[in-house]
Structures are given as C-alpha cells and as structure tokens.
Amino acid sequence: MEEKKQKISQMLSAKYQDIQEKRLNQLTREVIYGPQNRNVNINGKRVKLSDLRYQLADTFENMQSAKKTPSNADFNMMIASSIETLNSETSSEQEYFRWLDDCSEIIKDMNDGFITKDDLDSRNDFLEMSHQREADLMLCLGLYAGSSHPKAAEKAARLRYKLQKLREMRQTIETYTRNEADTKISKEEYEKALPYYKLFKGLRRLPYGQDLSAERKELGIQHEVDYDLLPTYDYFAWLVNETLDEEAKENTFNIKHQEISDKLKDLARRRETFKVNYMILERKKAQFQNN
C-alpha cells in the first residue's frame, strides 16, 4: 500500500482495534478523500470526518515527536500510547528544541577544526531524519487542513513554523558543513558557520514560535521559494493529490507486473515444444508429398 495511506491506515487500526480489514481500507479512503462534513460509521458510532482527521494528525505528530526513528514493530504500540497522552501536548515542541540543540551541536562539531567519523555520522543522521520528519509533518498538515475542528488552524500554524525551522536547519547543515570525515576545517569555514550556530543557539533560548527575524534576514535566510509554507497553501488538496499520484503509480506497477507475469507464463509454455512440433510438421509434409 502507498506510504501515506499506509500510515493513516495504521493509525486507524491502532485507534479502532476491532475494525475489520475491509472496513479499515474503506475508512482510510474516507479519511483522505471525504468532505469535512461527512459522518463515518465506526463500530456503530458516528464520527465526523473533520474531527477524525484532527485527532489522527494530533496522534501522529505526538507519536513521531516522542521518538526519533520508530520501527514498524513498535509503531502500533506507540500510536496506542500516544493516544493516552495526547493531552500533554508538549512532545512536539520538545522535539523542536531537541532539533535546535542537535543542529547547533552538529554545526559546532563539524567546524571545530577537524571532522571525525562520529561528527559526520551525526550530521548525516540528522539530515536523513529531517527528510522523514518533513514527510510526517506534511501529512499532519494535510489532515489538519481537512479538519474544521476549532483548534486545527492554530495547530497547523504551529506545525508550519516547525517545518520551516526544520528546513532552515537542514539547509544550513547542508551548506555550512562538509560531507566528509577525517578532514581539517579552515578558519574561513568556521567563521562562515559561526553566525548560523549563534542563530540556532539564540532560537533555543526563545519560546516556541518566537523567531529571530532580523538575524535571519541578515543571514539571507528566506522562504520565498517555499510556496507550501504560505498560510494560504492548501495542504489538504496536496494530501489528496499526493495519495492519488501514489495510487496511480501503484496501479501502473500492478498492470506492468501482470503483463510481465503473463509473458513469463507464455514463454514457459513455449519451452520444449520445438522438436515435437518440427517432427509433426515434417511428417505432415512427407505425407502430403507422398499423396
């Protein structure tokens, strides 16, 4: 199953453990494509799709923030436990501050004169995590955007801020640290990286959501090309389109798989027939000539 649908399906499955597989697939599609005011029936209870999306986004963000890289094995367990602790509403922000700590540390270690293998590993782990978390945040933003829950817009704005900062951290690390180990760093490189280190350290001292706009401007950090960070960007339309694209890809793959499978069956049938066919044809030809 496609990635986004699969994540939503896993969340639903953990939340409603008694649900039948067929109904789960149907419900997953309803969560993605259904209009906000639609009511869905889950184990005899009517739930508004808008509220369900809000709940799933909240659950998912809390779950993913709680741990850096959850394995599939404990995925369901984490969803279940995060539903229990939804009200704490702190882990998502804690994760943001952890990113700032990690990012500052990486910029420092990668520019302190010499890059060790461990320094490089930390850098690349962070970059990899940032891509995964970006995909998660986009999914949550899509779910919030598909919800008319009174708190959805506010939550989405907070997540959008987090996504913006994540991209800034990634961009800085990619630009101001080298992707190589056992190498010396020049004073010039250190001096270029220093203001960014100070920026993220500065952000760490501020409350969540409060930015250092003047400093960012001075460093030339802009998001003009990030059209998806604008408040008007329709994340729900994005989620639906992405899922439809994923489904189309999967359908194409299935059709191609079927074609190849048919061809292989046909080829297998053709084996070991040549000699027999040839003998039969030669015999027929001889009979024809004799007559």
Binding site: L267, A268, R271, F274
Partner: peptide, 17 residues
Amino acid sequence: AAEINDFVIECLMLEEK
C-alpha cells in the same frame, strides 16, 4: 536446434524478470 530454442526462451524469461 530445440535446445538452442529453449535457451533463447530462458533468455527472454530472464529479460522479463
């Protein structure tokens, strides 16, 4: 010739795989 033909079919199957 029959063996060669079977070999060719195996090659085509491998290409499909």
